[in-house]
Design a protein around this nucleic acid. Sequence first.
DNA 1: GGCTACATGTTTACGCTGAAAACATTTTTC
DNA 2: GAAAAATGTTTTCAGCGTAAACATGTAGCC
Lengths: 214, 214
Amino acid sequence: MNKPSPTDQQRPYHHGDLRSALLAAAEKILETEGIQALTLRAAARAVGVSHTAPQNHFDDLTGLLSELAAVGYQRFSAAVQAAAAAVAGADMRTRNRETGRAYVRFARAHPGLFALMYRSERLDVTRPALHAAIGLARQALRQTTPSSDQAAAPPIRLAAVGAARWALVHGFALLLIEGRLEGLMKAVPGGVDPDELLDAVFDVVRVSVDNPDV
Amino acid sequence: MNKPSPTDQQRPYHHGDLRSALLAAAEKILETEGIQALTLRAAARAVGVSHTAPQNHFDDLTGLLSELAAVGYQRFSAAVQAAAAAVAGADMRTRNRETGRAYVRFARAHPGLFALMYRSERLDVTRPALHAAIGLARQALRQTTPSSDQAAAPPIRLAAVGAARWALVHGFALLLIEGRLEGLMKAVPGGVDPDELLDAVFDVVRVSVDNPDV
DNA sequence: GGCTACATGTTTACGCTGAAAACATTTTTC
DNA sequence: GAAAAATGTTTTCAGCGTAAACATGTAGCC
């Protein structure tokens, strides 16, 4: 009805790349204002589009969050893989430490995104993009624990090694970004930063299929 | 205005113990329908009270969630402490394993509550009840890692031991209740249940201030 | 070139939610 | 026994997710 006035010629009816713009805006909101502020309408507002426009690209809020999580998993996989590649020749202990560092580094750099990625109640894992991205991440992580040196251990022990490494790093990352390690870190005379603490954790932990303990 | 008719004499104007009733209803909703269904109004409906009545006891939604989390921390502390007490005489490795089992057992028994307890964006940690309950839990966990045998190790190593144990068990619990360990568990021929996997994790992990590795 | 299908945005509308404000009913306190 | 406080209710408002109807631009097809 309204013909475009000279001042709003800038904005054509079609955005051009609304999907990407919405994802970028959503990530920004997630990292600056928290996940409770990340709404469909807020993302639409940030891009300057009507509040139902996102539905065309993501169906509903779960869709937007899932696609955003998929982006997160892709970046996460790339980061882990790059870290693993950088120490490809080293022994397994070094490789695991380096990928663990990358894991925690990612969580610290994108705390909101990382938390979203592991908040399954808001995600739809059957979405193709998310499903694929999670598979990619799984693959990136698994390649770092090939246990090529300890081939024929009991399967449950191999599974336990994988679970232990994952749990250790994942738990550390989550506790860290939730601020739960603050007390522990401040209790050390002189203070410790997260990187130092993580290194110390690696120094203090041994994960092996042939653990001599019982 | 309306005098009570014979049929609703049952419900006096004052509930009697609305606060407790709301907390119980909230927990039930949390565990059966998930955290996104846990609203002030839903809790009020479940108890059969006006939708603003909860405000008198919890101010707002953050208040309700925080008080519920406090209840969770209290129960959690009791469970961990009971587990520790049951093996009070044993060596440290046994004590840590047993408290770790209790940690994971609690998370599995109350997955919604456990997730809420570590979802800080919805909680107000300055609430006295929650603050106190978290302190209690910290204390219950700390008493299991006194490292009485390794007294004079570098402080950062002691901190790392605590962080490592916590991260390992916490990460395991979270990955487990989010279903992220399903693949790992199914990959083991014959199948594994979470308890077995956790035991295997403990078998495979060694945490010590004097780790000989480097 | 023109016409039709489709993709992409907008407007409108509805029910749910959190929350504040004004009010009603008990209980407690002095 | 009256005043004050605690506890519930009713009313109201704005923000949210989502569906439906509609508008506008794009792309394929003849």
